[in-house]
Design a protein around this nucleic acid. Structure first.
Length: 577
RNA sequence: GCCCCCGUAGCUCAGUGGAUAGAGCAAGUCACUUCUAAUGACUGGGUCGCAGGUUCGAAUCCUGCCGGGGGCGCCA
């Protein structure tokens, strides 16, 4: 069941060719949504120039050749040469029926690609903060969406499980004692543990020396040191999993691909780049200098792949991820869902990999830039400095607020039901807020706004779904029993049905552009179209049984699209609220 | 200094080179013995940062400027 645009594009193209000859075959019909009709085709204005004729005349000639029998009820030339296309209600009805009969709801299955997605990437023994929340939520939605479109997604959680901080963390672990309450902070309140280690490191020279020695032992592969390191990582995994579980994120231990997994490849990467002359020594560090990367005072910016102390930084491990994902995972497209400030670094890594021949032109690499999350003061929320909001605390707060709201709004529901619904609303609100703004723009973290039950928020969409479920409960039916033919009559029915036909095209676009906020915007429009329909078109109270059944079928389709769409965002749709 | 991103209604944000730039929130008006009013209908609200350029047509593309943010060698 093609969408209106998919149906009309080839027809208009054919009309253009028929009117102006093969030279014009394949011209873009420039089909766009319109405020004056269902769709408008703007091709005539561009063609007029090429043809040396008046745009309106060109538009008339296209119309003369246009076959839209059974699709459009009217085609009008308007303004300077726009083609206003109004769809036939019978066609809309049939397409809506076709969508309802399709288990995939009109979502195409695309040619399969292998798509590793790098997202979340929290640090061991550190609290996840709002910034991590965002890459986690956006990455997870992209993973769900691309999978649904038929791709093979390989989740890659590139956790920070290696590096110099582990010297002080391990020494602190020994100081407080393995298995002690303080050690368990890594699992419950990792920042407290990290800060305690940090404070000692900064204030106690003896401790700092032990920490530095411990880093050396770790890198040398000392067995006891590795055992302690693994314990820290394991404790952190518990923490990550509690967060992921609370948030309904699809990441599991199987998706962990932390920095340490590339340890045994780093030396070879450096050796190869050095022997091939791609990397050179500079101030004791092994660096890659690339054309076009200059920094202060026009000095070339290095990608440091081996520090002067012999250690490796994230430049080297990131190079290793490119190699691994291309050579071992056979990726067609690699997504790095990472903070926007990393753009320079990532580009240098990719250019280095290209220069080395590890990254080839047939593999698309994309930086899905995650904009900074700002505090109420509009300043960046940072981990290093300042005191970050504990993510768990934040989630708990959202759940609590949601509970208060549902308690007040639905005193008729029993306590157990309300307690079950509240987390779905609270968590959904946070995730939806992250997803509904373009991923590369900054945004101010504002719990109150996220939890607002009106406007473009998670709860509003959940409410729309819950209302539909309520209708089916009252009808004594399940949604999949409402499979009657859909017949469009009222304007609100028409608008709702048209919105439903756009689900597939929107998902295609989200997959291509990697922009979940488009799905949010679409679902919001759909929910609004449904609310308007709900106001003006009685379903169960409809006089005519045929109208009632048609509207029930429309409700069922709306519910399925809402639930499916929310699921691709990683947001639950409660039965009632 | 160089590079990247951003600047749209009071606020938060959409916006595929197409007609009179849109939502939501907030403000105001109206509609509930309700298929869930947590809603809907309506009203007011704009120098799309500024100035050029390209184009039949620019919020959108190009250049310059102003303002904000970020990045720019041994943290990741």
């Amino acid at each position: 069941m093609p969408s209106p645009a998919a149906e009309l594009t080839p027809r208009i193209s054919a009309a253009i060719t028929a009117a102006f000859g093969d030279d014009y075959a394949g011209s873009d019909p420039v089909l766009r949504p319109s405020q004056f009709a269902d769709l408008q085709a703007n091709a005539a204005l561009a063609l007029a120039k090429r043809l040396g004729r008046k745009p309106r005349e060109v538009a008339e000639q296209i119309v003369a050749q246009l076959d839209v029998k059974g699709v459009c009820s009217s085609v009008e030339v308007s303004g300077p040469g726009f083609l206003n296309l109004t769809l036939d209600p019978a066609w809309i009805s049939a397409q809506a029926g076709g969508t309802a009969a399709d288990p995939r709801l009109g979502v195409p299955t695309e040619e399969r690609q292998i798509v590793p997605i790098d997202y979340s990437a929290p640090n061991v023994a550190k609290e996840m903060h709002a910034g991590h929340l965002r890459t986690t939520v956006v990455g997870d939605s992209l993973a769900r969406t691309l999978e649904h479109l038929g791709h093979t997604v390989i989740r890659q959680n590139h956790i920070g499980d290696w590096g110099t901080p582990f010297g002080m963390l391990i020494e602190h672990l020994l100081d407080v004692g393995e298995g002690s309450d303080e050690a368990r902070l890594v699992e419950q309140d990792p920042n407290a543990f990290y800060q305690a280690a940090r404070t000692k490191f900064d204030g106690d020279p003896e401790f700092a020396n032990r920490a530095r020695a411990r880093v050396v032992a770790l890198q040398a592969g000392d067995a006891e040191t590795l055992r302690l390191w693994r314990e820290l990582v394991d404790l952190s995994k518990q923490y990550f999993n509690r967060i992921y579980s609370a948030l309904g994120v699809t990441l599991t231990d199987d998706d962990l691909a932390g920095e340490s997994t590339y340890n045994d490849q780093l030396a070879a990467i450096c050796d190869e780049l050095e022997s091939r002359g791609i990397a050179t020594m500079s101030d004791g560090a092994l660096c890659v200098f690339l054309d076009g990367y200059t920094g202060r005072e026009n000095k070339p910016v290095p990608l440091i792949i081996r520090k002067s102390d012999g250690g490796y930084g994230y430049g080297t491990t990131d190079l290793a991820t490119v190699k691994y994902r291309v050579e071992q995972l056979h990726a067609n497209r690699v997504l790095y869902v990472i903070g926007a400030p990393q753009a320079l670094h990532l580009n240098m890594v990719w250019d280095t990999a290209r220069k080395a021949g590890w990254l080839t032109d047939d593999v698309e690499v994309v930086h899905v830039q995650i904009g900074n999350v700002l505090g109420p003061d509009r300043k960046m929320m940072r981990t290093r400095s300042g005191n970050p909001l504990r993510l768990m605390e934040l989630v708990d707060e959202a759940k609590l607020t949601a509970k208060k709201v549902i308690d007040e709004a639905r005193p008729d529901l029993d306590e157990a039901t309300r307690a079950e619904i509240a987390p779905q609303i609270g968590v959904g609100a946070i995730k939806y807020a992250d997803l509904s703004v373009a991923h590369d723009t900054e945004y101010v973290f504002d719990l109150e706004r996220m939890l607002s039950l009106t406007g473009n928020t998670g709860p509003y969409l959940q409410y729309a779904a819950a209302r539909i479920r309520s209708i089916f409960r009252n009808a004594g039916l399940t949604a999949d029993q409402a499979t009657t033919t859909i017949t469009i009559a009222e304007p609100a029915e028409r608008a709702l049905a048209l919105a439903l036909l756009e689900f597939g095209p929107v998902l295609t676009q989200v997959g291509a552009l990697l922009e979940p906020h488009r799905l949010c915007g679409y679902l919001f429009d759909l929910a609004q179209a449904f609310s308007a329909f709900y106001e003006s078109c009685p379903v169960l109270k409809a006089d005519d049984p045929a109208v009632r059944d048609s509207r029930l079928a429309l409700c069922a389709l709306t519910l399925r699209v809402l639930v499916q769409g929310l699921d691709l965002l990683g947001v639950q749709a409660p039965e009632r609220m």
